[in-house]
């Protein structure tokens, strides 16, 4: 599934980031293939906020659709 299809509270592992430009940008923020993160907030029709360690990052819907993830656990 892609990041926009996840639920708040889910812990995820990133499988792939389709768009190379987004992959480059995300890599700098510490989000890359194999990294774990959790979904801490979702704005309906808007961005998904993910948490990694003590960091929170808001990613626009269009970016989330490019990020394939797998669920590790859910709350």
């Amino acid at each position: 599934m892609t990041l926009n299809e996840t639920q708040v509270g889910d812990t995820l592992c990133i499988i792939d980031i389709a768009n190379p430009q987004i992959a480059t940008m995300a890599m700098r923020l510490g989000i890359c293939k194999g990294s774990n993160l959790s979904v801490c907030s979702k704005v309906p029709g808007g961005p998904v906020v993910v948490r990694r360690g003590h960091m929170e990052i808001a990613l626009g819907r269009d970016i989330c659709k490019q990020i394939t993830v797998t669920k590790v656990s859910s709350q």
Binding site: A26, L29, P47, H54, E56, I57, A58, L59, G60, I63
Partner: peptide
């Protein structure tokens, strides 16, 4: 451009 925003505590 889509939003990528770091949310400080």
């Amino acid at each position: 451009t889509p939003l990528v925003l770091d949310l400080p505590p």
